[in-house]
């Protein structure tokens, strides 16, 4: 029982629940364990193989969409909505309008997400990329933003300051992670300075902070 209390004190310190430990022996162990946990947390993460990403995409595509109407007024209503959305997407992709024009007429977030996903099948030009950058800036939905960042990741050589500056204004961890992944690959000149400033932010998510620190430690090693 005594040892358990001793270990609880240590872990409260390692977890940050206690600022200090009065017992000298526990304090010594606690400091060492905290360092070990810090070292483990800041190890670089392996990337998920692209083949797995593809398999998951195929898996998701293979699941039949079974959107159910909450009101259950008409069991075919969701099917009709899905069909209409799909038809709308097909329509906007085949009319020869600019992507921006096509995108503006989409009202719901799922439609917008589908639209952005589908852009992976197209070769985007400079003005498309500039438009996506501006959408990224004004979009509020983090899922759409992550999807845009992932799409832009395919055009790293065409990304400019507009993209790089997105991290400054971004506060959602999932979007921050997506931006960091791409910024890490771009390796632009001021990356380290920007990341130092970024890691100083208050209330930064642990995973995001760890990712930013990992990029910094790689470039300073």
């Amino acid at each position: 029982m005594k040892e358990e209390l001793f270990e609880k004190d240590i872990m409260d310190f390692v977890d940050g629940k206690a600022k200090d430990i009065s017992n000298e022996e526990a304090a010594l162990i606690g400091h060492d364990l905290k360092q070990i946990v810090y070292d483990l947390k800041s190890m670089p993460l392996e990337k998920v193989p692209t083949t797995t990403d593809k398999s998951i995409n195929d898996f998701i595509k293979g699941i039949p969409q079974q959107k159910q109407s909450i009101l259950r007024l008409n069991k075919w209503w969701p099917v009709m909505v899905a069909a209409a959305s799909f038809a709308l997407l097909i329509l906007v992709f085949n009319q020869g309008n600019s992507l921006q024009d096509d995108y503006q007429i989409l009202a719901s977030n799922p439609d917008k997400l589908n639209f952005i996903y589908k852009l992976n099948e197209k070769e985007l030009n400079g003005s498309d990329i500039a438009w996506l950058n501006s959408e990224l800036k004004k979009e509020n939905n983090p899922n759409i933003k992550v999807t845009i960042v992932d799409l832009l990741n395919n055009y790293q050589s065409k990304l400019d300051n507009d993209f790089i500056r997105q991290l400054e204004d971004e506060s959602t961890p999932s979007v921050q992670m997506a931006l960091l992944n791409t910024l890490e690959e771009i390796q632009y000149e001021d990356l380290n300075n920007d990341l130092w400033a970024f890691t100083e932010r208050k209330n930064l998510d642990n995973m995001v902070k760890s990712k930013a620190s990992s990029i910094l430690s790689k470039s300073t090693n």
Binding site: L45, E46, K47, V48, T52, D53, I56, N57, I60, I63, P64, Q65, Q66, K67, Q68, I70, P78, P110, L113, N114, Y117, N143, V146, T147, D150, S174, M177, A178, M207
Partner: peptide, 29 residues
């Protein structure tokens, strides 16, 4: 997101995958 998946918006599973795949893969690895 999970509520949406339960309602049948299966493509949303891709968003959850994006959020958690790196962490889970590294955990397993």
């Amino acid at each position: 997101l999970l509520q949406k998946i339960i309602r049948g918006e299966t493509q949303v599973l891709g968003v959850l995958y994006k959020r958690y795949s790196t962490l889970l893969f590294n955990y397993f690895y």
